[in-house]
């Protein structure tokens, strides 16, 4: 009797698992929501809008180009991801939104991103236009001034180090914490790409 019950439970669990469909990694949005708009200037000084990327998969990261540790790590991972996806890489758009309008400029973003992958898009906004984008994505970015006796670095920006995944229909699907396994992100990206040809 007990064994039968157990068997039934296992079956139910399996059936439920099958119903759930594809499970995105990171912290998925349940249900996925329309990605909040991101506009600004790209690294060539041309107007940018996230809407224009529909039909592609977008990976959005908020950083700044004086960031020596977290941002290069994430950008290097994004580059690796695109190289692993190979033939579909042109449909994977990496969007890097600067949260340091004081030190960054479109030109500086261009210089910075070219060192990683020239196909990455940098997005620049002044601090007033940046605020609603940060809020919509739940991004924290606070300037922290150092004590001059401790460092020559001036200030750094405490910032949210999540990467946001936006599907081909402009839906915000999930977000990944810093240094999530690239393989997991790749699976999610490939799933979304296969959904919309």
């Amino acid at each position: 009797m007990k064994i039968k019950m157990l068997f039934l439970l296992v079956l139910i669990t399996l059936a439920l698992g099958a119903c759930a469909g594809y499970q995105f990694h990171g912290i998925p949005y349940e249900p996925p929501q329309a990605a909040p708009p991101i506009t600004g200037l790209d690294q060539n000084g041309a107007p940018f809008s996230l809407d224009a990327l529909q039909g592609n998969v977008a990976l959005v990261f908020f950083g700044y180009s004086s960031c020596p540790d977290i941002c290069p790590t994430t950008l290097a991972e994004m580059r690796q991801l695109r190289s692993q996806i190979k033939d579909k890489a042109d449909r994977v758009k990496v969007v890097y939104v600067t949260v340091d309008p004081e030190r960054d400029t479109p030109e500086r973003l261009k210089e910075y991103l070219a060192a990683f992958d020239p196909t990455f898009t940098g997005v620049f906004n002044n601090s007033i236009d940046l605020e609603p984008i940060k809020q919509a994505y739940g991004v924290v970015a606070e300037k922290v001034y150092y004590d001059a006796k401790d460092t020559a670095a001036g200030y750094s920006v405490d910032h949210t180090a999540r990467t946001y995944l936006i599907g081909p229909r402009g839906r915000l699907v999930t977000s990944y914490p810093y240094q999530s396994p690239i393989e997991n992100i790749q699976k999610d990206v490939e799933y979304l790409l296969s959904e919309v040809k």
């Binding site: 960031c67 020596p68 540790d69 977290i70 924290v140 922290v144 150092y146 401790d150 460092t151 670095a153 750094s156 405490d158 910032h159 949210t160 180090a161 999540r162 914490p177 810093y178």
Partner: peptide, 15 residues
Amino acid sequence: IHETIDDNGVMKMRP
């Protein structure tokens, strides 16, 4: 010499 601290998803770099 610096250190980055992960404070609940917010990265904080300190000298």
